[in-house]
């Protein structure tokens, strides 16, 4: 454990020097954009992980994050479907969650994609904010005993980041 921490410290030094070099030599669009979001690290890791990220403009970056919302909602919906079998006593809350996540997939995501692509970012903002809201409402249905907490948190965080980037398009 101690070793690992040491190693991390060392890496941080090496890496931060390296990244400063990079900053000087080549300003990074993703990094610049993510600086303006409430969750720099999450933002960079999500955008860097997408092959489109390196060449995308701001609206392209926003669209990548909407894609991530879609992916996460799909994953969460699968998880919800599995929970019906494993935790039948949660049926009531799972029904509500299922409806909420279907709203993310069928309403929020298409709304956000169309709005960002066509250049009406405020409706894109509605869509990505709502994704976080629906996740929160789902979470609340379990009254503190949610089997989905990590997924909820993820959706809230990505929604916050996506919102910040969409707002740059206003």
């Amino acid at each position: 454990m101690k070793n690992m921490k040491m190693m991390m410290m060392m890496m941080m030094v090496v890496v931060s020097e390296a990244s400063m070099m990079v900053m000087v030599s080549e300003p990074n669009m993703i990094e610049q954009t993510c600086k303006e979001t409430p969750d720099f690290n999450l933002c960079v890791s999500l955008l860097d992980s997408d092959p489109r990220g390196s060449s995308a403009d701001t609206s392209g970056l926003a669209l990548i994050l909407v894609d991530k919302i879609k992916g996460l909602a799909t994953k969460t919906l699968n998880e919800i479907n599995g929970l019906y079998k494993r935790r039948p006593e949660l049926k009531h809350a799972l029904d509500e969650c299922s409806r909420r996540y279907k709203t993310i997939l069928n309403a929020d995501v298409p709304e956000a994609i169309e709005a960002i692509s066509k250049g009406v970012p405020k409706f894109g903002e509605d869509g990505v904010i709502d994704a976080g809201v629906e996740a929160s409402v789902c979470e609340r249905g379990f009254i503190g005993k949610s089997p989905l907490t990590n997924l909820t948190k993820s959706m809230q965080r990505i929604s916050n980041v996506a919102r910040a980037i969409v707002r740059m398009l206003l």
Binding site: M8, M11, M12, V14, A18, V22, E31, F40, L42, S45
Partner: peptide
């Protein structure tokens, strides 16, 4: 973590940058 010191130094700047953020994230 184990890989990084070896491969990371060989990697081009973008790769390093990515890990930097990744580690920072953790």
């Amino acid at each position: 973590f184990r890989r990084r010191p070896v491969k990371g130094l060989l990697a081009v700047s973008f790769g390093l940058l990515f890990i930097a953020f990744y580690v920072a994230l953790i």
